[in-house]
Every structure is written in C-alpha cells, then in structure tokens.
Design a binder for these strands. Structure first.
Lengths: 241, 241
DNA sequence: GAGTTTTGATGTCTGCACACATCGGTGTCA
DNA sequence: TGACACCGATGTGTGCAGACATCAAAACTC
C-alpha cells in the first residue's frame, strides 16, 4: 500500500531485467504480465512506458514487449544504477561510478574554485577540518557522513548541474565502500590533509591547486580499489553510426 | 502518425516544462490536459508517468500534476538534454556538456590505452590520420563526421559504459559547435596532431601519454569556447541531506 | 486549536474498437 | 513444377470511455 502498483511493477520488471533474470531478446505479453503480477492493464502499460523510456524494453505490435540488451540501457538513470548495484554486476557498476567520479571531481574542484558561492566555500572548509578530526578519532560513521557531505558540496559548488547530480551516486559508492569493509578505521593521514587542501584552495579561489589536491585524492582511492576490480569483466558498447 | 500519441504528449509537456513555459510549481489537472491535447486519459497518464520518472513532475492526490524545479530534473537523460538544447538554456547546456566531456575524455583515453580491444585501436589510428587529412584540405563536413567518430571510438574504447553513453551528447556538442560557426575552416594544426598523438598512444598502450594528449585537446577546446559562455548564468543545485 | 468530516483529484480496473506488423495461403509467371 | 509477389487472416499493442476505490488537502465542528 505504501507504494503505488505501477511503481512496484516497475521495480519488479526493472530488477529482473537488470539482473539478467529476463535476458535480452526475451519477449513478454502485456496480458501475461497482468496475470503474473496480478495487476490491471493500465498498471502494466504505465510501467512498460517508463521502462521503455529507460531503454530497458521496446514494444512492437504483433510481437510484444521485448527486453533490450544492456548497451541500450540508460546507464545514468538512478533507477538503473540502483538495480545494477543490487545485481551481480554490482562490482562493475561501482567501478564505473568510481571512474566517473575520479574524472569529474578534479574538474568540479577547479570549477568550484572559480564559481562557488562564498557560504559554500566556508562550509567546505569546516567540513574538511571536521573530517580530519573524525578520521583521527576513528569515528567511522561520522566520518562517512562528513565524507559524503564534503564531496556533495564540492560537486554542487561546481555550478555544473550534471556534476552536482552525481552526488547521490557518489554517496552510494562511499557507503558501499565502507559497508564492504574497504575502509580502514583510521583513514590515510595524507588523504585527510588533501581534503583540507582542496577546501582551502577552493576557499581562496586557487583552481589549479584545488584540481591537483582533488586529483591526488582520486588517484589514491582508485589505486586502493583497483585490486578488487581486476576480475570484473568490462563491457564495450559498440559505436552507433 | 509515425509517432505514438503518448510520445507526442511527452514531447509537448517536456519541451514546455524545460523551456520554462510551464514554470516550477505550476499545477495541471489530468482532465484539463485531456481536452488541451485532445487525447484520452490513458495517454495522459502514461506520458505523466514518464515525465515523473525524469523528475519533471510529481503527482499528488487532491492537488494534481505539479511541475518540479530544474534541480529535480535528471540532467543526464537524453530527452531532457535535447529539450534543454532546444530551449533558451541551450548555451548553459552546451557548457555543461563540454565541461563533462573535458573531464571525462582524458580519463577515457587513459582507460582505452589499458583496455581497448585491438581492432578499435587500429580504427582509432586510421580515423585520426583521416581527420588530419580532412582538416588540411578544409573538408568541413567530412571533418565533423570523423571528429564525432574519433571521440565516439575513444569513449567506447574505455570499457566504461557510462563514458560510452556520452557519445550521443558529444556528437550534439560537436555538431552544435560547427553549426554555430565556432569552427574555423581549417582546424588548428596542433590540435590535429594531438588527435593523432592520442590514437597512437592508445594504440601502443601508453595510458599516461594518451591522457596528456587528450587533456591538451580538451583544454584547447574549452578555452576556445569559454568566451561565448561567460554570460551564461550558472545554476547551483542545493545539497540534499 | 485539535479532531473529524467532506471533498476532489489521482489510482485502479474493465470492456471495447482500432491500427498495423507478421505470417501463411493464394495466385501468377517463368 | 517451382519461385516469387501479392493479399487477407490473425494477434498484439494503442487508444478510448466509464466506473469505482483511495487518500490527502481543506473545510468544518467542537
């Protein structure tokens, strides 16, 4: 009752498709889904429309509802990301997000140093120092919270709405990293200082220093996580012409 | 006739919302939309469901269909990007995409040098040299085509499906740049060589050189376009806690 | 001001007509 | 006789109309 029926239908089909349970090329009939999910046609139709806009299925007359291959999915949609994180491809999704983050955050730091509003800069500095303290004291949950806030502020301060939109996904990777025990109780001392460096550089408008310090953080986290990813298969999306 | 009714309804409402014609907070009634667009209720409902999944509207009982502020839109959705490119915010959208591209492409080049399949590397080299020739001969349309192909191959070769998915948007920015007369008839000589450098570096698996050459290309294009963007207002998305 | 009732919009279900892609049969021609 | 083009039957999504259920905002009562 808490969520609407069509929403539940979307979740059901979305998770099954992304998990590979419903493979690409598999065709379903609207009528069959009605009885399977025990909902009416209108609910099915609304759910299919949303899945269609996400690139997960296509509908063809006289054929039915066909599941599309992963290369057609919208990899930036929050729902698709969530479903992938809940599937066997969780590792590959985390790597993709981490690579994206590693590319974007230094650029965001550079832009934030140029454009961020003054209050945001001040808050960023406060959070960086609070992070350092929490890290020294081994307060893991508080450190995670501040870490998410720091990187959210950084992305938001870039003034690029696409960068800012990655906040949610970044939070996923950070929490995922701590939940999976990939974070030590006491974060690396240099990394803590680099966060402070980023905040201070942004605060004084030094875009080059901000980018460089952020880049250092990203390179460290990437090298830290790369060990666990080597076995993840990479997917090459063909070029559409 | 070629497009379905619900698709036309999505286009109609999507363009009007993104253009600001239907401002944030504006509420509509499904019944009212039926008569306005002269379609049945089911068409309206399916369209609203899709717009809801894009974060453009929310539905509340007893209130209606409320338009959400831009901070809630999904800035990575291809439809949203297309609507923004067709609106007054075209400049801001192009800048966001260019900033994203500038951040991602060097990282993609680095990854491609490590992971790209052999045939893709060869094709990339061919395209780079073809680009250089087309640039020297002032064949503008052919150059644009090859330019798009080059950067598509690069992103695709990274093996990161999120990077690869930016192909379409990158094509938009490149065509938009030439259409708007921002491209000279004879591209910068050094830039042409940098493209070759990227391809060669990827071909021989030199990830550092690939990143550096790609970074040079990006820095040049950004500085080239920055003049036209200075007047575009930046939007700061608040941090959600 | 707190609790209750009313109200009005979305949410869900159902039956029907239509459009149209696919498939198989029919007819024509070589 | 065989190959091919045509064409109608069939099945499925698409669109429509109307009914009832649900639930939260708003009005009302105490």
């Amino acid at each position: 009752m808490t969520t609407s029926l069509h929403h539940r239908a979307i979740e059901n089909l979305g998770t099954r498709i992304v998990s590979g349970n419903l493979p690409a090329g598999h065709v379903m009939l609207a009528e069959q889904l009605e009885v399977e999910l025990k909902v009416s046609r209108s609910v099915i139709r609304e759910a299919v429309r949303v899945l269609q806009s996400l690139g997960l299925v296509e509908t063809t007359k006289r054929v039915g509802i066909r599941v599309l291959p992963p290369s057609r999915w919208n990899p930036f949609d929050p729902q698709v990301i969530r479903w992938r994180l809940a599937s066997d491809a969780r590792g590959a999704q985390l790597r993709s997000l981490a690579e994206l983050r590693a590319a974007v955050e230094p650029a965001a730091a550079e832009l934030a140093a140029q454009n961020a509003p003054a209050p945001l800069r001040l808050e960023l500095v406060d959070v960086a120092y609070a992070m350092r303290d929490a890290g020294h004291n081994g307060e893991v949950p508080r450190f995670l919270e501040l870490d998410i806030q720091f990187h959210s502020l950084l992305l938001s301060g870039s003034g690029n709405e696409m960068f800012a939109n990655l906040m949610g996904q970044v939070a996923e990777t950070l929490t995922g990293r701590t939940v999976h025990g990939l974070m030590p109780d006491h974060p690396h001392e240099a990394a803590l200082q680099w966060h402070v460096d980023v905040a201070e550089a942004i605060s004084r408008g030094d875009s080059a220093a901000a980018r460089e310090a952020s880049d250092r953080i990203m390179r460290r986290t990437m090298s830290q996580m790369s060990d666990t990813w080597t076995e993840q298969p990479r997917v090459f999306i063909p070029v559409r012409r």
